[in-house]
Computed example of a mutant assay.
Amino acid sequence: MAEAPPYRKSESLELPEGEAGARLPFCPGIRSEAEVPLEGWCSGRGSCWNYHCCLNDVGKALLCRASSSLFKDMSLLIRNLQRAIPIRRVPLRKNIEQIRRILGVQQFDLGVICVNNRHIQLLNRNYRWKDSPTDVLSFPFHENLTAGELPQPCARGEYNLGDIFLGVEHIYQECEENKEDFYSILTVTIAHGMCHLLGYKHSTETEWQQMYEKEAQILLELNRLSDTNLQPLTKHHF
């Protein structure tokens, strides 16, 4: 788990050599057409990275969005940039949509990107200075967030929560080790990441308590809707 990492101005995402999602000159995070995955996604906060949606055939279309207003009908974008772990999109999307409704943020765009260990480790090293894989990194679109308060956009292009990078390979390995259900933990991890996008942190015990209570509230309602028994990711953080 990780708090929203700090951005470095004017910096674009660099992927390891051979990683799915290579760099094209006009698309940060994409290095060569040959290595563009079936569903490429490079993203970040508007002030630092441009948004790009790399379609299956790069030769046909490469849509670049500098603001979310180009995607008014695509408020939830899920991209899978890894092949280590199969991802079932239908239940994943259903759970994310339920969490969005519980939080009351359906009107905000959200990006969820699934990556492997190498990719999440690169992000973790570049933005948190920790050279190891992790389960989730959240990149809020808005600055100076107050936990418990929704962002107050001034324009349509600002109706954006940001992006959640899921280290699905790392999550799967931990689930195997702890004998836990992968999709249950994936759902809990997404709820955790969305709390970070809304300003919640766990750097201190006071912050952790506030974030833990919010996660518990989300999962209590989700458990009621889906007949599950999900527990907050930060349960034993302090």
Rank of each mutant, 00 (worst) to 15 (best):
T187D: 08
A216W: 03
Q209N: 12
Y212D: 10
G148W: 03
N117A: 15
Y159H: 04
R101Q: 14
L219M: 05
C114I: 09
Y212E: 04
G46N: 11
N116E: 08
D73I: 03
S184L: 00
R118G: 08
K214G: 07
M74Y: 07
K60E: 15
K9R: 14
D181A: 09
L186N: 02
N144T: 13
S10V: 12
L123Y: 06
Q173P: 00
H119W: 08
Q217Y: 14
P28W: 01
R128D: 09
G59D: 11
K214F: 02
R100H: 11
A22R: 12
Q107K: 11
L76Q: 04
K130M: 11
L161Y: 04
L220I: 08
R65D: 07
Y127C: 06
C64I: 13
N178M: 10
F165I: 06
T187E: 02
G21I: 06
S226N: 12
L13A: 05
N56D: 08
W208R: 00
A34N: 12
T187A: 02
D57V: 02
V136Y: 00
T204N: 04
P6E: 05
I171F: 01
C114N: 13
G46T: 15
G29F: 01
L137Y: 07
S43W: 04
V90E: 14
L137K: 01
L219T: 07
S10Q: 11
A2W: 01
F71H: 07
V168Y: 03
Y212W: 12
K235V: 15
E17T: 10
P91G: 04
V36Q: 07
Y7I: 01
S203K: 06
P5T: 01
M211N: 07
H170S: 10
Y51Q: 05
L123M: 11
C27K: 09
L150H: 09
K235R: 15
I99C: 10
K179I: 11
P232F: 14
R156M: 03
K72Q: 08
Y127R: 06
L55P: 03
G167W: 03
Q98P: 01
A147R: 01
R89V: 15
L122K: 13
H142Y: 04
G59M: 05
R88M: 02
P151L: 05
P91Q: 06
L70K: 12
E158L: 09
R93C: 14
T189G: 00
R45N: 08
P16I: 01
D73H: 10
E17A: 13
E215I: 04
K201I: 04
D135I: 10
S69H: 06
K201Y: 07
N117Y: 07
S43E: 03
R89W: 09
N126K: 11
T146M: 03
E221L: 15
E169D: 02
K179F: 12
E215V: 07
L123N: 00
V188T: 14
H170R: 08
C54L: 15
N124R: 08
P133S: 04
S47Q: 14
G104H: 09
R93H: 12
S138N: 10
L55A: 07
K179D: 02
Y183V: 02
T228N: 00
H52K: 08
R88G: 00
C54Y: 08
F141D: 09
Q231S: 10
L166C: 05
L161N: 05
V168I: 13
S203E: 13
L225F: 06
L70Q: 09
A216Y: 05
L24E: 02
L81Y: 11
N116H: 13
